[in-house]
Amino acid sequence: MALSAPSKCGPWFALGALACLVLPAVPAAAIVGGAPFADRAIARHVVLIVGGHSLCTGVAIAPDLVLTAAHCVLSNGKYRLLAFDGRRTVVKDVASVTPHPQFSLRADAPDLALVKLAPPLAANLAPAAFSDRRAPPSVGDRFIVAGFGVGVQGDGKTAGKLRAVTLVATDRPSSQQLSLIDPRKLGETAGFGVCNGDSGGPVFDERDRALVGIVSWSGRTDGEAVCGFVTGVIPLARYRYWILETAARLGSPLEP
C-alpha cells in the first residue's frame, strides 16, 4: 500500500475548545473510531501538552523529560504539561524544548522533540522503557498507540481523554517511517486511528509494552488528511543516540 505525502496531525487550533479542555479535573475523549480508554499501565507514562492554542500528547522518558513530536512545540508560546492521577490533575511548567536538529515538515523527517520539565518533579509520572528492537518492524506486527486527541474528527470537545488502541504495521516499514492501520479495516475504510491532538503520543510494542515510536501524522492512502485510516509513526531506534545525548546535556541522563 503506497502512501502519498501525509500531513502532520498534531496541533488543532480551536482556542475555545482548548480552554474548556484544560479547566476540568478529568479531561473529556481521543483516538477516532471508538477506541477504549487507556489502562493505568499506559496512562502513567503519558501526558497532555497544551500551549500555543494547540493540544498534543507526550510520553515521559525520565522523571523530568518528555518525548513528543517536534511539530507540536514549534511556536514560542508557553507550554504546560498535564499528568492525570485518577481525578487529580498535575500541571507542570516547561523549562525548555529541544527539537531534533534535522526536523522539517517532510513526512520522513525526525519529528521528535524533548521537553524538559521545570521542578518540582511530578510524582505520578512514570518513565516509559525503550524497546530493545533495532530492526525495522515487519508488516503485521502489532503496536499499541495512545493519545489525548479528538474522538471525532473536527470536534474539539471530544479531545482530552486518553485512549489507546492496537494497530498493525503496513506499507514496507523502515527505520525512518512506520505506517499503522486498523487490522479490521486494513486502511480501506475509516476505523481506529490517530487524529488532531494525538501527535507526540507513544507507540508501544504490544509484546512487551516497550516504547518504539512517536505518533507524527495521520492520513489516507491517497495522502488526504483524514483521520482513522493510516497512522504515521517515527521509529525511535534510529534516533536513540540523539535522545540519549540530548537528555544527558539537559541534565536528565538515560540508561543506554
Rank of each mutant, 00 (worst) to 15 (best):
I49V: 15
V50W: 08
V50H: 13
G51L: 07
G51W: 07
G52Y: 04
H53I: 11
H53D: 15
L55N: 04
L55E: 02
C56M: 04
G58Q: 03
V59S: 06
V59C: 11
A60K: 02
A60T: 01
I61A: 09
I61T: 05
A62V: 04
A62I: 03
D64C: 10
D64R: 15
D64A: 15
L65Q: 07
T68Q: 09
H71S: 06
H71R: 11
C72L: 08
L74A: 13
K78A: 15
R80H: 15
R80K: 15
L81W: 01
F84L: 14
D85L: 12
G86R: 08
G86Y: 02
R88L: 14
T89D: 01
V90W: 09
V90R: 12
V91M: 13
K92R: 15
D93N: 15
D93K: 10
D93C: 03
V94F: 10
V94Q: 08
V97T: 04
T98G: 04
P99T: 09
H100W: 09
Q102T: 03
Q102H: 12
F103I: 00
S104C: 11
L105C: 08
L105A: 14
A107T: 05
A107N: 04
D108T: 13
A109W: 11
D111Y: 07
L112D: 01
A113H: 02
L114V: 02
V115R: 00
V115S: 04
V115Y: 02
V115N: 02
K116R: 14
K116P: 00
K116T: 06
K116F: 04
L117G: 00
P119N: 10
A122H: 00
N124F: 02
N124Y: 02
N124L: 04
A126F: 05
A126T: 14
A126I: 11
P127K: 07
P127V: 06
A129M: 08
S131G: 11
D132L: 08
A135L: 14
A135W: 13
P136E: 07
P136S: 08
P136H: 09
P137N: 09
P137W: 06
